[in-house]
Design a binder for these strands. Structure first.
Lengths: 98, 98
DNA sequence: ACTCTGATTAGCGCAAAAGCTAATTAGCAG
DNA sequence: CTGCTAATTAGCTTTTGCGCTAATCAGAGT
């Protein structure tokens, strides 16, 4: 599960999508328009992000509104910091014993 | 540059290598031995991590000692938190203006 | 039902990544 | 120089990822 998150983050376009989404929810079309790649290509990137649970999609009549899912990003960041023994606020009682 | 970091983190085996390295420097052979995959395969994973500057390699006579490079991991984590507008301690003077 | 716009899915081709075995390099010991 | 161990590099095959165009699905309006 965590794996799909990091895989999703591996592509620059997808990280760029997240930075756009960071400023607030956006319609699929608006997101796609912000890139040079074709619309279907961007749709696929959005699907990858959704699969990783990094974003959520809501139909608004004719169009689809995308929102970033902060908690999953936070978890990923925590995982990275955990890799270097940085306390991320999660309880790591083993740390205290060392 | 940042891209190679996230791409390096995309593979489970490489993240696993980092968790092993988190406990301290380790020899290439010891790292490779901890996985099912063949030695050359693990060597290649280590090369990818080194390329991304996530680890450093030092020859110790006959063998090679790998060390994790915490600052690059921290940067990556910060980048993720930045994606959701979390202040990471870096100066982001633009934030203050909003 | 027809059509227009918004968005995804299908199918294809190509490039990059991942894995293996075999071959090679690097250093040390004799 | 030979032999031994540690590790990487080469060469190859298979799998995965990316991007395109064309086709399809979904909803709203007429």
């Amino acid at each position: 599960m965590e794996n799909s998150v990091f895989k999703a983050l591996a592509h620059p376009a997808r990280r760029q999508l997240l930075t756009l989404l960071r400023q607030g929810p956006r319609l699929a079309g608006d997101l796609a328009a912000a890139f040079e790649a074709s619309w279907p290509t961007m749709s696929r990137h959005l699907a990858v992000l959704k699969d990783a649970d990094l974003i959520t999609a809501d139909r608004q009549g004719n169009q689809i509104l995308y929102r970033v899912n902060p908690s999953v990003l936070e978890d990923a960041a925590s995982a990275l910091l955990g890799l270097i023994g940085k306390d991320t606020g999660d309880d790591e009682q083993k740390e205290a014993a060392e």
